[in-house]
């Protein structure tokens, strides 16, 4: 009996490790996109602490609200309110956000985020047109990787400044004003109200102008550079800062790594450390979206693996690697 159960467990494990990650991810992302962009029409409401860009400006269709929107609103409260009992609401919101987050860690970016999915679709479109993609290269990568932390800091400090009376309320939710998700995602439900410039104040005009300009950059940028915007995303920075207790983990066994570079070649975010670093066990970096392409592209058994609460759920195997390579890799490498 136990032998039979063991055989079936190993069959499931083998099937999972041999999975066609590209198809699995496409359908997972598609379902998540439909859920978070149109779920509101089915009265689905997952609250306002969602750890990815389920855009709150998509008023009709959203099935939940990206946590950054209520966070900025809450931080913009007058200090006397923020630092009183009413401030508990901020902590409650963050607590809920944290609970959502620890389940999937940065998997929210790689599998659930509608804006991330949209970027992946633009990449697919580019591949079909035969236009080659762009890379940052190592120097610009290192120079730009702090931008998301600066945006995160500004996103917190500006609302606090509003609450302290230093800035105008017209600067409320400053990151949302410049986020391409605010402009692009409501369009999927036919809402064009975000395609405007706000002339009611100078700060409103500057922020909405920046928002529209960045939305234009986003469309072209995501077309030629994989996951163009994720590199600058303050949500990604926030994720990284609180990722330690997360349940979903990307682990690497440096001793079995041959430094073949496959993992780096398929990485949409150009994270060189995934191939170079053979010391750290936790392979997730600040830019990682936990898309798991690196695991799918690794030919060494058990070198890269995904764990959920300490349980191994997906790992690199030679068989899985060969199967995916014969089918077209199952991973969109730099050679595309």
């Amino acid at each position: 009996m136990s032998e039979c159960r063991g055989r079936s467990t190993s069959r499931i494990r083998r099937a999972v490790n041999n999975v066609d990650l590209q198809s699995f991810r496409f359908w997972f992302q598609f379902t998540a996109f439909v859920l978070f962009v149109y779920g509101g029409y089915l009265a689905i409401d997952l609250g306002n602490s969602i750890p990815m860009f389920s855009c709150g400006y998509n008023r009709e269709g959203r099935a939940g609200v990206c946590y950054l929107l209520p966070l900025q609103h809450q931080l913009a409260r007058p200090w006397e309110q923020l630092f009183s009992a009413a401030g508990i609401a901020v902590l409650t919101g963050f607590g809920l956000f944290f609970l959502w987050f620890i389940v999937l860690n940065k998997g929210w970016c790689g599998f659930m985020c509608p804006l991330g999915t949209l970027q992946d679709w633009l990449t697919s479109l580019r591949k079909r047109t035969g236009i080659r993609y762009s890379l940052y290269g190592e120097k610009p990568f290192n120079a730009l990787s702090w931008v998301k932390f600066v945006l995160l800091a500004l996103m917190i400090l500006i609302p606090l400044g509003i609450g302290g009376g230093w800035f105008s309320h017209d600067m409320g939710a400053p990151f949302c004003q410049i986020c391409p998700g605010r402009v692009v995602l409501p369009l999927f439900t036919g809402d064009t109200t975000q395609l405007t410039l706000d002339f009611s104040s100078v700060s409103g005009l500057v922020l909405t102008g920046l928002g529209m300009f960045i939305a234009g950059m986003f469309l072209i940028g995501s077309f030629i550079k994989k996951r163009f915007f994720c590199f600058f995303c303050p949500m990604s920075a926030l994720h990284y800062l609180i990722a330690k207790p997360a349940l979903l983990k990307l682990k690497k066994d440096g001793e079995t790594c041959t430094k073949c570079g496959n993992c780096f070649n398929v990485c949409d975010m150009e994270i060189r450390a995934i191939a170079d670093d053979i010391v750290k066990k936790d392979a997730m970096t600040d830019d990682c979206t936990l898309c798991l392409k690196c695991v799918a592209a690794c030919p060494e058994p058990g070198t890269l693996k995904v764990e959920f609460a300490g349980l191994k759920i997906f790992e690199s195997t030679e068989e899985g690697f060969l199967k995916r390579m014969n089918k077209g890799a199952g991973c969109d490498g730099h050679s595309h």
Binding site: F213, G216, M217
Partner: peptide
């Protein structure tokens, strides 16, 4: 402005 961003 959006078109300017796109063209730029």
């Amino acid at each position: 402005v959006g078109t300017a961003g796109l063209l730029f």
